[in-house]
């Protein structure tokens, strides 16, 4: 069908990242740290925000809000046809049913992968991303090469991530914006028929919900 050609081990590992992160020297980093500290001191000093509130936000976005939320949404859709219909009709309302929402969760559109359609999400302008279900975007999602190239040559970019699609699979690229943010509903892989909803959530990867890989059988 549509699994990556190079087998399970690779498909379950982090995809090879074609876009390596940038590195700064210590001096540049120190200058950036000073600028951030100046802002923090200013807004804390003005009473606009507390240091504790900043710590809390970091903690929430790094630990509580993350792709496990999206994985639970996907698993529910796989096991509950009525939920799936609601999810595809109104993504924001359907994730709210599971208690997810908030900043960057408005106007969420869920697009479904099928045997003949593969969806992939990008934000060509900046890095709009459905935080409540996927957490914060990975660095490659924010980098210019991915943002610009996936629109022009999606098959080539997907291949670099290890996803080879048959010619008869249509690739749809969804460009996120302030109006719309997208999440991919991956196909439920074969061999998962007996799995519980919780176990299914465990096989859904963040990158599959961005649409870069497809999910392989467990």
């Amino acid at each position: 069908m549509s699994e990556p050609h190079d087998g399970h081990t690779h498909a379950h590992d982090a995809p090879p990242n074609p876009y390596l992160e940038k590195r700064r020297n210590g001096e540049e980093t120190a200058a950036l740290e000073a600028r951030v500290k100046a802002i923090e001191d200013l807004v804390v000093g003005k009473g606009l925000v507390t240091t504790a509130a900043l710590d809390r936000i970091v903690d929430i976005y790094e630990h509580d809000v993350g792709p496990l939320n999206g994985a639970r949404v996907v698993a529910r859709a796989w096991t509950d046809a009525a939920y799936k219909a609601r999810l595809l009709a109104d993504g924001s309302a359907a994730i709210a049913e599971l208690g997810y929402g908030g900043l960057q969760g408005e106007h969420l559109v869920v697009v479904e992968n099928t045997d003949t359609v593969h969806n992939v999400v990008v934000c060509t302008l900046c890095s709009c991303y459905p935080w409540p279900v996927l957490g914060l975007p990975p660095s490659w999602y924010k980098d210019a090469p991915y943002r610009s190239r996936v629109v022009i040559e999606p098959r080539a970019v997907l291949a670099e991530f290890g996803t080879e699609l048959d010619d008869d699979v249509e690739v749809r690229v969804w460009d996120s914006s302030a109006e719309m943010r997208y999440m991919v509903l991956p196909q439920r892989p074969p061999g998962t028929e007996g799995m519980s909803e919780a176990a299914l959530a465990g096989i859904v990867t963040r990158d599959a919900m961005i649409g870069v890989p497809r999910l392989a059988s467990p």
């Binding site: 995809p15 951030v36 807004v43 606009l48 970091v58 993350g66 792709p67 990867t205």
Partner: peptide, 26 residues
């Protein structure tokens, strides 16, 4: 897996801080 599949979201502490300040003030 859903957490493991990605690389670091923040490379440096100041990035984490800048993110939090922008979200908090919003």
């Amino acid at each position: 897996l859903p957490r493991r599949s990605g690389e670091l979201v923040f490379h440096d502490a100041w990035e984490r801080r800048a993110f939090a300040i922008a979200v908090a003030l919003c």
